[in-house]
C-alpha cells in the first residue's frame, strides 16, 4: 500500500504587509508533504518562516498563493473549508510555544482540557467532561489533583503537558507543535519529547514538529525539512540528513549545535553560511532516494 499523504502543502507563499507597497515574504513557494503517521520536523533559524508555515497549515493565516490539501480538501478555499469545518477543526490540533500565554489564566485545568470537546459538542466518551479531562491529564503523566488548579499555579513543564492534553483530547489526526519545548528546561524537555514519542506511537497521529533544537529533532522526527528564508533548502529522513547534510546552510546549522564535550567542542569551528539570498533559479533535486536538496540552478550547466 502506498503511503497516504495526509497533508500536502503546495507552493505556499505568504507575505506580511509592511506598508502599502512593501511586504516581507515569509514563505516563498514552500512545498512539503506529511504522510499519515509520520513525524515531520521543520527546522531553521528564527525568521525562516517555520511558524508562519504552521499557522498557514492550521488556517490561522491565509496564504496569498498556494494550496494546502488536508485529506484532499483545499483548506485555504473558503467554500471547501466551510463544508468540512467540523472535521477540519477537530482533527487538526496545535500546541503553541509559550504555554503561559496559550492557556487562559482564568480557566481551571479541567475546563481547559475539556473546552475543545465542549465547543465541538462531542459527547464525552467517558461520561462527563471532567472525567474526560482527568483521563487526558493522566495520559500525559499528571496527577488528577491538578484538575482544579489554574495555569499560573503550574510549572512550565506541567503547563505544556496541559496544552498537549488539550490538543490530544480531540484525538487529532494531525498535531502541529510550534516549538513546544523551546521554553522548557533540559530535563523537562526530555520528558516532553519522550511523551510526544510515546503518544505518537500509541495514537498514530501525524505530527508536524517545529523546532530550532536540532538535537531533539534528530531524536524525535522521521523526516526533516530545513527552511531558510521561507524556502525549503533540504529535506530528508532524519538519520540521513544528520549523517550527510548536503546544503551549505544545513551544514552550517548542524555545525552550530554545541557538543557537550569540552575538548572536542573547543577544538571545533562552526561553519558559517553567507548565502544571503538564495538564487531564484534554484532547482529542487533528489540527490539520493528521498533526500532532496535545493541546488543553485546555475551550477547544473
Amino acid at each position: 500500500m502506498p503511503d497516504e499523504i495526509l497533508l500536502d502543502v503546495q507552493r505556499l507563499t505568504h507575505r506580511y504587509p509592511l506598508t502599502r507597497t512593501m511586504s516581507v515574504k515569509a514563505l516563498d513557494n514552500l512545498s512539503f508533504q506529511i504522510i499519515r503517521g509520520e513525524i515531520y520536523g521543520l527546522v531553521g533559524e528564527s525568521g525562516s518562516g517555520k511558524s508562519t508555515a504552521a499557522r498557514c497549515v492550521m488556517n490561522l493565516y491565509r496564504p496569498q498563493t498556494g494550496k494546502i490539501l488536508y485529506k484532499g480538501i483545499d483548506t485555504c478555499y473558503p467554500k471547501a473549508f466551510r463544508a468540512n469545518r467540523r472535521m477540519l477543526q477537530a482533527s487538526r490540533q496545535l500546541v503553541f510555544q509559550d504555554s503561559a500565554s496559550s492557556l487562559n489564566p482564568r480557566m481551571k485545568v479541567c475546563d481547559i482540557i475539556a473546552e475543545p470537546m465542549r465547543l465541538q459538542r462531542i459527547t464525552p466518551p467517558r461520561g462527563t467532561l471532567r472525567a474526560e479531562a482527568e483521563f487526558q491529564l493522566k495520559y500525559v503523566g499528571m496527577d488528577p489533583g491538578y484538575l482544579d488548579k489554574y495555569p499560573p499555579e503550574l510549572s512550565g513543564g506541567q503547563r505544556q503537558r496541559v496544552a498537549i492534553a488539550r490538543a490530544l483530547a480531540m484525538e487529532p489526526e494531525l498535531l502541529v507543535a510550534d516549538e513546544p519545548i523551546a521554553s522548557l528546561d533540559v530535563s523537562i524537555q526530555a520528558q516532553i519529547v519522550n511523551l510526544f514519542k510515546h503518544l505518537q506511537a500509541e495514537h498514530g497521529f501525524s505530527f508536524l514538529f517545529i523546532a530550532h533544537d536540532l538535537a531533539m529533532v534528530e531524536f524525535l522526527c522521521d523526516r526533516v525539512g530545513v527552511m531558510y528564508r521561507g524556502r525549503l533548502v533540504e529535506e530528508a529522513p532524519a538519520a540521513q540528513l544528520f549523517a550527510r547534510p548536503l546544503h551549505p546552510y544545513t551544514q552550517a546549522l548542524l555545525s552550530a549545535i554545541p557538543i557537550p564535550d569540552p575538548r572536542r567542542e573547543r577544538a571545533r569551528r562552526p561553519l558559517e553560511f553567507h548565502g544571503e539570498e538564495l538564487p531564484p533559479e534554484s532547482v529542487w533535486i533528489e540527490a539520493s532516494p528521498r533526500h532532496f536538496v535545493l541546488k543553485d540552478g546555475r551550477d547544473e550547466r
Partner: peptide, 8 residues
C-alpha cells in the same frame, strides 16, 4: 541550563 554551551 545547556551543557553544550558550557562545554564551549
Amino acid at each position: 541550563h545547556d551543557l553544550g554551551v558550557v562545554a564551549r
